[in-house]
């Protein structure tokens, strides 16, 4: 109970700290980026007669929301330990019973909430513009599916980035960016079993299963290339990645010597 108290207190404290011009500015820029691009595409189709892109508008929205979600996670999740060490507040937190676990899970929760909020703003904005321009079929289903996928992505990738932050705390953001590019971009496109260890392939599988009617392309080619996992198996894999990452992070943070003070 005490531990949960500390986790929630950390999460609440971090969310409260978001109310600064700098952080709100980042929030606004990230969340308004996808709607602005959608607006630009609609403007192109209305005034320039370029309608080809609109057929793929849903894919464009998925891509853009994924980008801003990842960027947001990159900003908040891997810096869990480094920001405390840099802000010299680690010593105060680590000297509390359960302080290390509270900071890990509390900051993870805060990063997931902030990133998901950005994704939601981006989704609502993008879909509102798309509906206004009558450019998307069945927007409610697509919006609900993407909301769930964004939540799963934030939970799962946030956990991996928290682990990176705990293990590689001095170069956390660089390592996390390398992970996104190397693993979630490159490895996830490899049509082999190794790809199943990435978050993106499972999210793609789920997206194809749930949005097969709304997508402009038939998913058969994808299934033939990457294999077809059942929804429950994809969800299980995502849960396993999340639990493994958070457990490993908790194990490491309890055993790592992060120094209080400047003396060494």
């Amino acid at each position: 109970m005490n531990q949960l108290n500390g986790i929630l207190a950390t999460c609440f404290f971090e969310l409260k700290r978001m109310w600064t011009f700098q952080r709100l500015g980042i929030f606004v820029v990230l969340s308004s980026f996808p709607p602005l691009i959608v607006l630009f595409l609609l403007w192109g189709s209305l005034f320039l007669g370029e309608t080809q892109t609109l057929n793929f508008l849903l894919l464009v929205i998925i891509f853009l929301v994924a980008i801003v979600g990842m960027l947001s996670l990159l900003l908040w999740a891997p810096t869990n330990i480094y920001s405390e060490l840099e802000g010299k507040s680690w010593g105060f937190i680590a000297s509390r019973p359960g302080g290390r676990i509270s900071i890990l899970f509390g900051k993870y929760l805060a990063a997931v909430i902030q990133s998901y909020a950005i994704c939601q703003f981006a989704l609502v904005g993008s879909f509102s513009i798309a509906v206004f321009g009558n450019a998307i079929r069945d927007p409610i289903v697509a919006y609900l599916v993407l909301s769930v996928l964004a939540l799963l992505a934030c939970i799962c990738i946030g956990a991996v980035m928290s682990l990176i932050g705990v293990q590689f705390y001095r170069r956390a953001m660089v390592t996390a960016a390398a992970y996104l590019v190397g693993i979630e971009l490159v490895v996830a496109t490899i049509p082999a079993i190794v790809g199943k260890f990435t978050v993106r392939q499972h999210l793609q599988d789920l997206g194809l299963n749930w949005l097969s009617k709304e997508l402009p392309l038939k998913p058969t080619i994808y299934y033939n290339t990457f294999g077809d996992y059942a929804d429950w198996l994809n969800l299980l894999c995502l849960a396993a990645i999340t639990i493994f990452s958070l457990s490993a992070a908790a194990y490491i943070i309890q055993r790592r010597e992060y120094l209080i003070g400047d003396e060494a």
Binding site: R17, W19, T20, E86, G87, K88, S89, G91, F92, S95, R96, P97, G98, G99, R100, Q254, R255, I260, G261, D262
Partner: peptide
């Protein structure tokens, strides 16, 4: 070491300055 429940009865004031300007 790794028994942070022992810190329940300890108060620490490190030498480092807290850098939380907006709090």
């Amino acid at each position: 070491w790794r028994r942070d429940h022992l810190l329940r009865d300890v108060g620490l004031c490190p030498a480092t300055e807290v850098n939380l300007p907006h709090v």
